[in-house]
Simulated assay, not measured.
Amino acid sequence: MKGVHSLFVVLAAIVLAPLDVRAQSADLVLCDRIAADPSDPDKPADVKGVTEIASADIPTAIRFCKQAQASRRALFQLGRAYAANRQMVEAIAAWRKAADKGSTSAMVELGVLHATGTGVPKDESQARKLFERAAQAGNPRGVSNLAALGGGAAAPADPARARELLAKAAQTNAEAQYQLGLMLADGTGGAKDEEGARALFEKAAAQNHPGALARMGEFSEHGRGGPKDTAAAKSYYQRAADLGDEDAKKALKRLDCPIVLKDKRGNLVSNLCF
């Protein structure tokens, strides 16, 4: 009987454990679907993410991200949902827990708050530490924010160092590819390289990065860093617009309505569309 009882306990554990895991995974899936940040390195590749959590989705995001908060990604996203709901005390608490678990995106958010004095005492030293931790782990926003903040209290930003750090992260990260592409396109922190920028934007665009898709539209439209291709430009703009990029939406309208009518004072009257 003792052996039978032990077998029952083992079987019960095998049966019950997957149910718990599946329940937690379902919460995380829903949390990801409505609250994931497109630039979060922890975001699953098959999740698009949202630049801003829709107001109608905020209560649902808080509910499911809270239930999945064993995951550092869910904690970071819970902080996003609280911040979208203007509950900054709760957002900061969630981001601190996420940062403690290793979320570099949470480190960046906390760094921004310390740099600006939003919801916490203004402390550039603490902001720098948080950005450095995120940058060293390869978070592109950590890199760019660290460069913007500068190496010391009175030191200027170091865009050349930002390029160096971004180049490492750009080997695998779409956001880093996009950020480095912007620096190459503008000649920030080194030589201007439109061909290199276009190659980076193309890599990030292949991963459905909205900003990179919009940039590829611009580069294709004007022939920057490669051939001019209006059809390709429209395709890139459309993909970016479908992901909510406002600049891409304006670019599409401009391509569809290229003739601008103005009054005698030069003010826009209307566009002629085809």
Rank of each mutant, 00 (worst) to 15 (best):
K48N: 15
L184K: 01
Q238K: 03
P59D: 08
A231S: 13
Q24N: 14
A45R: 11
R141Q: 15
I58P: 06
L11A: 04
A13V: 12
A134M: 07
N173D: 08
H222Y: 15
D256E: 12
T104P: 05
S103W: 01
G142D: 02
I62P: 09
L113D: 09
P227Y: 06
A231K: 10
A191E: 11
A148K: 15
S125Y: 15
T230C: 12
E52K: 12
R80H: 08
A167L: 01
R73W: 03
T60M: 08
A135W: 01
Y178L: 13
C65M: 08
G217W: 14
A115N: 09
D245N: 14
T116L: 11
V10Y: 09
A91E: 03
A99K: 15
A154W: 06
T172W: 05
L146N: 09
P59G: 07
A98H: 02
A148T: 15
L272H: 01
L213M: 06
A84L: 00
D100R: 15
N271C: 10
L28M: 06
K192Y: 03
L130Y: 04
N139W: 07
A93Y: 04
H222N: 13
T51F: 13
D57H: 05
Y178F: 13
A68F: 10
R80W: 01
G190V: 11
P156A: 07
A23T: 14
A45Q: 08
K122F: 08
L252A: 01
K97F: 07
I34V: 15
A240M: 05
K249V: 10
L255R: 02
A148N: 14
L180E: 07
A93D: 01
K228C: 09
D42Q: 13
A169Y: 04
K66Q: 14
E109V: 05
A137P: 13
P41R: 02
A26L: 15
N208H: 11
